[in-house]
Nucleic acid binder design. Structure first.
Length: 305
DNA sequence: TTTAATGT
């Protein structure tokens, strides 16, 4: 398994500690607020919800009755809100900092795969629901050397032209190595579709990863390219967590990771299986938290690989 | 077949 990630890529959670440099990087920013440019006026502000909205987000019922100091703190708005979007074909959580999805989840079955929807009628499009400061555009990708790689695949949603159209929002897209996109990753997507022949429902959650690697000084760094005027982040890897629902309610997980680089499509897909925990640690996400994952025998298989 | 980008 290690070899498939390149020898120096590390996916273990131990290596994911955040450095202390961020305080240094941000110091001095406040001076700019008072400078001639009056930057504060240019800062995008998310519409201010009611002050009580903060208490509505808290899991403590009493907070709704008595606004506290912390609710007063957001008098001028939350710097961010949930970036979850519901589309015809998928649900996505947008990563505004990286201008890509954080994750995209979709449901596949025999029904979603059949229909007359035509990919030729679709065009990649900006997601207007994302603030212009955080939005990826087609021009960011043009000439970058990267494909606009779907996370929820177009061919998974032939059941409705609208559903297929929705997969072409750039909020469902990340910069992907063209060879990977058109070969090994495409094969993984086809494999997911084929699984609908054997399972009632196939849920697929896909997203980018930014894995740390050791540089020449022996220290760990997360390094990734950004493309275009909007600095769209180029993930180092992609994950795909396949959740298989059997007839009797039994659930099986198949978690895959591929590097965002050419991958020989002769390598069997099973070789890209990883423990679900490694994706969870690296991504900050948790998958199907309400089922027992430790009993998943596929983990044992990937651990042996 | 499904992925895309590129050039018109």
């Amino acid at each position: 398994m290690q070899r498939l990630f390149c020898s120096r890529w590390i996916i273990s959670g131990v290596s994911l500690a955040v450095g202390t440099g961020i305080g240094v990087a941000l110091s001095g920013a406040s001076d700019r607020f008072h400078g001639e440019n009056n930057l504060l006026r240019k800062i995008p502000v998310i519409p201010i919800p009611s002050v009580n909205a903060a208490s509505e987000l808290l899991p403590y019922p009493q907070a709704q009755l008595t606004p506290s100091k912390s609710t007063a703190a957001v008098k001028y708005g939350f710097p961010s809100l949930s970036h979850i979007r519901s589309r015809e074909s998928h649900v996505t959580c947008y990563d505004a900092r990286n201008r890509t999805p954080a994750w995209v989840i979709e449901q596949l079955n025999a029904g979603t795969l059949s229909g007359t929807s035509d990919r030729k009628l679709c065009d990649f499009k900006e997601d207007d629901s994302v603030h212009v400061y955080h939005r990826a555009t087609n021009s960011d990708y043009r000439g970058s050397g990267f494909d606009r790689g779907h996370l929820a695949a177009a061919a998974n949603h032939k059941w409705s032209q609208k559903a297929m159209d929705d997969t072409f929002y750039l909020s469902n897209v990340a910069p992907q190595n063209p060879h990977l996109n058109q070969n090994a990753w495409n094969n993984l997507e086809k494999y997911c579709r084929s699984l609908t022949k054997h399972y009632e429902n196939v849920y697929v959650c896909s997203g980018p990863l930014y894995l740390p690697r050791q540089e020449l000084d022996g220290k760990m760094y997360v390094k990734y390219q950004v493309i275009g005027k909007n600095h769209v982040a180029v993930p180092t890897h992609f994950f795909k967590v396949v959740i298989l629902e059997k007839k009797h309610g039994e659930v099986e997980l198949r978690p895959y990771v591929m590097p965002n680089a050419p991958v020989d499509e002769k390598i069997p897909l099973e070789r890209f299986l990883v423990p679900i925990e490694s994706i969870e640690r690296a991504s900050g996400l948790l998958f199907v938290p309400n089922i027992l994952k430790r009993t998943n025998n596929l983990q044992a298989i990937s651990a042996k690989a």
